[in-house]
Design a protein around this nucleic acid. Sequence first.
DNA 1: GCCAACGTTGGC
DNA 2: GCCAACGTTGGC
Length: 205
Amino acid sequence: MANKKPASRPAKKPAATLRRAAAAPRTATVSQFFTSKGGPWGKCFLPRAKGARRFWLVKSEPLEFSWDDLLASPGQTTRWDGVRNHAARNFLRDGMKLGDLVFFYHSDADPSAIVGVCEVAHEAYPDLTAFDPAHDGYDPDSTPATPTWFVVDLRAVEALPRPVTLAMIKRTKALAQMALLRVGRLSVTPVTSAEWKVITALARG
DNA sequence: GCCAACGTTGGC
DNA sequence: GCCAACGTTGGC
C-alpha cells in the first residue's frame, strides 16, 4: 500500500495559540499541544454519546495513493498505513471510531483539494509496515509487543460532486479555524461538524 | 537539557 | 525549484 505521508502545510500566520505553544513549550511540541486533551482539538478525544459520529480529514499525495486508487481497491477499502507523526497518530488511533466520516484530501496536487468522503471501516490496529525492515516505513522502535504506529481501514463512501480546493477553503471565513489550515504537517486532522457542513455545501455548489 | 543541523511536507 | 515551518537527531 502506498505511503500516506504525515504532513500538512503550516498556517502562514500562526494563530496566537500556535505562537504561544511554540514559544512556551519545554514539555510539548506544537503538535502535541494541538492534539492534547487541553488543546484546541482536545474535544475529539472525549467520550461521545452512543452512535455519535465525528469527522476527520486525511491527506494523500495522488501520485502515491489517489481517490481513484481507493475506488479501485478491493471493497473500495484501504489500510491507511504509513502515518509517522505522533499527532496524526493520536487522532487516528484515539479519535477515529467505526463509522466516522473522513474527507479524502489530495495534497501536493493540482489543485490540492478535498475530493471524496470515506468512512472508518475498522478502528486502529498496529501498522505492520513499521515492523518490516524492507519497507519505507520501517521503524525499529516500533515492535509488535509495543507498537508505535497504527492504521485504520477507510472505505470510500462517495466522491464529492465538485472538489473543494484549498483555495476555496482559504477564502471561506467559516473554515478559517480548520486544523488543515492551522496546524502544520499533519496527515490526519479533526473536522468539526460545522466545518463538515460548510464543505459539503461547497461541494454541492 | 539546550540547540544547531538536518530532513520532511507541501503550498506556491 | 523555493522555502516556511514543522519534527527529529545528536553533540555537548
